[in-house]
Simulated scan of single mutants.
Amino acid sequence: MSIPKTNAMRILDTRNIAYEVHQYDNEDGQIHGTAVAEKVNLAPEMVFKTLVAHSGANLYVFVIPVAEELDLKKAAKAAGEKKIEMLPVKELLKWTGYVRGGCSPVGMKKLYPTFIASSAVELATIAVSAGKIGMQMELEPKQLAEALDARFSELIK
């Protein structure tokens, strides 16, 4: 069966970046990271969530392992800001074009400064949302960083 392409996948395709799609059933409402990792049969340290934070009018994207927590002080330091806070979930769609649980770092409305947890560098591949609840895409962390002009940083508590 063919998989419908998401905007995130099309962007990777145009950049000739290889990825593998993992689909999962989300009917049970379990779309939090560790449940998704289990459903796509990947270790939680390989599955990364996309978090959006802001400092004033500046938005930043942080990609960290699903079982970890973003350290806002480290995130602010990486972004070169004094203080940073999470973007309210109700504003996610407006700024990124994505909904909670289906927020991909690839293909947001704008290319925001993006930071990927440095633990990703040690892995052959990581999985991130493909831009739709029920779909993950697995790819090389360095290629993801290249596609997003992202930097690897210390981000987790």
Results as ranks from 00 to 15, higher is better:
Y112L: 00
S2C: 07
M9A: 13
V106T: 04
K94I: 02
L155A: 13
L123E: 02
L59F: 14
I126G: 01
P113A: 09
P105W: 03
A57P: 01
F115L: 02
L59Q: 02
G56N: 08
V106L: 04
Q143L: 12
A78C: 11
A127T: 05
I64V: 15
K90L: 01
I11N: 08
Y60L: 03
N41L: 07
Y60I: 05
A43Y: 05
L51N: 00
A78H: 13
E81C: 03
L92F: 12
E38V: 05
H54F: 10
Y112P: 00
S129Q: 10
P113D: 12
E85L: 03
L92I: 14
F152V: 13
E85H: 09
N7G: 08
G80V: 07
L148K: 01
Y112H: 03
A75R: 00
G107N: 02
G97C: 04
I116K: 04
K83N: 04
I126V: 15
P44I: 08
M108S: 00
G134Q: 11
I11L: 15
A150G: 11
S104L: 00
E68R: 13
L111E: 13
Y24K: 05
S118G: 07
L70S: 04
V89F: 09
E45F: 12
G33M: 06
P113K: 07
M135T: 07
H32N: 11
A124E: 15
N26D: 14
S55G: 13
M9S: 12
A117G: 07
A43R: 10
Y112S: 01
P105N: 04
E81Q: 15
E138I: 02
L92H: 11
E146N: 14
E69K: 14
P65L: 11
D149S: 13
M46Y: 11
I64S: 08
M137D: 10
M108F: 10
K132F: 11
R15F: 04
I156S: 06
S104G: 02
L42A: 10
S118Q: 13
Y60N: 03
Y24S: 08
K109Q: 01
Q23P: 04
L111T: 07
P113W: 08
A120D: 09
